[in-house]
Amino acid sequence: MSDSRETTHFGERRVAMEDKQGLVNAVFHGVADRYDLMNDLMSGGIHRLWKDAMVARLAPPRRGSRPWRVLDMAGGTGDIAERIVNASVGYAEVVVADINSDMLRVGAERAKKWRFPAQVSFVEANAEELPFDSDSFDAYTIAFGIRNVPRIEKALADAHRVLRRGGRFLCLEFSRADVPVLSEVYAAFSDWVIPPLGRVVTGDAQPYQYLVESIRKFPAPAQFSAMIAAAGFKRVTHTAYAGNIAALHAAWKL
Results as ranks from 00 to 15, higher is better:
S101I: 07
R165H: 14
E173A: 03
V24W: 05
F233W: 03
I80K: 03
Q21T: 12
R235Q: 14
A240P: 12
K234R: 14
I146P: 02
G30L: 06
R110I: 01
D36P: 01
V70Q: 00
L156D: 07
D138H: 14
R34P: 05
D98V: 04
F189K: 07
D72Y: 00
V89E: 13
F144N: 01
T7L: 08
V185C: 15
W68V: 06
G76S: 08
D135T: 10
W252E: 15
R62S: 12
R63K: 15
I146S: 03
W252Q: 11
E82G: 11
P180H: 06
H238P: 08
R13N: 12
V200D: 09
A53R: 14
I99F: 15
A229S: 13
A159Y: 01
A222R: 13
R62Y: 09
R147N: 04
M103I: 05
F28T: 02
P221L: 06
V15C: 08
L104K: 00
R57D: 10
P67W: 07
A220L: 14
V55R: 00
Y140L: 10
A125I: 05
R57G: 06
E153W: 02
D191Q: 11
E12Q: 13
A139I: 05
M17S: 11
L197I: 05
R176N: 12
N25M: 11
E93R: 12
R168D: 06
S225T: 02
M103T: 06
F122W: 00
G107E: 08
